[in-house]
Simulated assay, not measured.
Amino acid sequence: MIPPFASPEIEAAFDVPDSQARAGLLVLRQLIFDTAVKTPEAGRIEEALRWGQPSYLTPETKAGSTIRLGIPKGARFALFVHCQSRLIPEFAAAFPAWDRLEGTRAVLFNHPAEVEPIRHGWLIKRALTYRISPPLEIPA
């Protein structure tokens, strides 16, 4: 089930001119909510705007690190995490050479089909539980 947008301003943040970028951002948004449902320890997910980008937080448990969705300079769309966290380095170690990364802050995409639920869901789950969980096991 596709959750409604938390506000008209957040919905407007998904109105980007590039239809492939919009579709990809919506795929990532759905994956965040789907992963959150399977991750009860994260608590309720709040959708907000941070730096003008749709952002996903764990306000009640404070278990997670903020996830943001946006349009980077070097790709059509991206999933961003806090650049000073261990999230991207752990993701790169778990899934070496699978994705284009922007330093320690983002996974870059050019097409919605590049979003892979197991691999990118792993990163999302790790972000949603960043402050309460040790690094996740690499899926087989």
Rank of each mutant, 00 (worst) to 15 (best):
Y56L: 05
A13I: 12
V81S: 03
I32A: 00
R44M: 10
Q20C: 06
V81A: 04
N110V: 10
R50E: 08
Q53D: 14
I67T: 08
A12M: 11
S85L: 09
K73S: 15
A75H: 06
A94N: 02
A12W: 04
R50Y: 13
E137S: 14
P17I: 15
V115M: 00
I118W: 06
L26T: 05
G52Q: 14
R76G: 13
P17Y: 08
E90R: 12
M1W: 08
A48W: 01
E102F: 12
F77D: 02
F5L: 09
L128G: 01
A94Y: 01
T61Q: 08
A36Y: 00
G70V: 11
F77E: 00
G70W: 08
L136C: 08
R44D: 08
F91Q: 03
T66C: 14
R105N: 08
V37C: 05
G121N: 03
A12P: 02
L31A: 00
I45E: 00
F77Y: 03
P72K: 04
T35A: 03
L69V: 08
F33Y: 03
I10T: 11
R76T: 05
F33H: 00
L28T: 04
D18P: 14
A13H: 08
Q53W: 09
G43P: 02
E47I: 10
H111W: 09
L28F: 06
V107A: 06
T66E: 10
S19E: 15
T58I: 11
L79S: 02
K125A: 02
E46C: 04
A48S: 12
P4W: 06
E116Y: 03
L49Q: 10
Y56I: 07
N110H: 12
R86G: 04
P54F: 09
I71H: 01
E102M: 11
Q30G: 01
F33G: 00
F109W: 06
T104S: 12
P139E: 04
P40Q: 10
V37P: 02
L28P: 01
L136Q: 08
L108P: 03
G70D: 06
A106C: 12
F80S: 06
I71F: 08
R76C: 06
R22H: 07
E60Q: 13
E47T: 05
P59T: 09
S85I: 11
E41C: 04
A94M: 04
R44C: 05
P112T: 07
P59Y: 07
W98R: 07
G52S: 15
P139T: 11
Q30L: 10
V27A: 05
S65T: 15
P135D: 00
R22T: 13
W51N: 12
